[in-house]
Amino acid sequence: MAEAHSKDTVDSRADDAIESLAARFPGLESSTYRGQVRVVIGAGVALEFFTHLKQLGFNQLIDVTCVDYLEYRGATRRYGLVYLLTATGTGRRLTVRLFVDDPEPAVPSISGLWRSANWLEREVWDMFGIRFIGHPDLRRLLMPEEFLAHPLRKDYPLQGRGERHNFPVLTREDG
């Protein structure tokens, strides 16, 4: 019963979350597609914004990822980061978008707010080469350390640039 009660209060808070956000961060763009609410923020206010979101009850960071809009028709900014948030109390979801550009794309890290951001941001660094300022341990997550490129960028070919052949061959005599 107590659970249900607290759920209600959190729910009503989350319902007007967008309005309170818009009041606090003027110029916030928001849109809805298939029932999914998305807001676009600037890199400058990111940390403050996410701290505020966490206070609003969005306590779980589901995913951090990125889209490289290099070949996307009509796109003006190159990298669009995607943060998927959930409020486990109410089940509300929110998608936060943040755009950055070449060269030296960088955004503030939110791994201090959500632990799950730690590895997800490392993966984005590995795959897209976006620096997360303030990240405690920004190393490659998936590719080997000596790898130089960022493979999910659109200017990197699917078959790679020959890295997968750079190994010595063992024949029977080596055994």
Binding site: I62, D63, T65, V67, D68, E71, Y72, R73, V82, L84, R115, S116, N118, W119, L120, E123
Partner: peptide, 26 residues
């Protein structure tokens, strides 16, 4: 979950998979 970006063609512009294992392993 999958975060799918459509660009008008029948190939996804970006097909991000949200894997549960990564966060469990972390």
């Amino acid at each position: 979950g999958f975060y799918v970006v459509g660009d008008g063609s029948e190939v996804a512009y970006r097909a991000r998979c949200r894997p549960p294992s990564v966060l469990h392993f972390s």
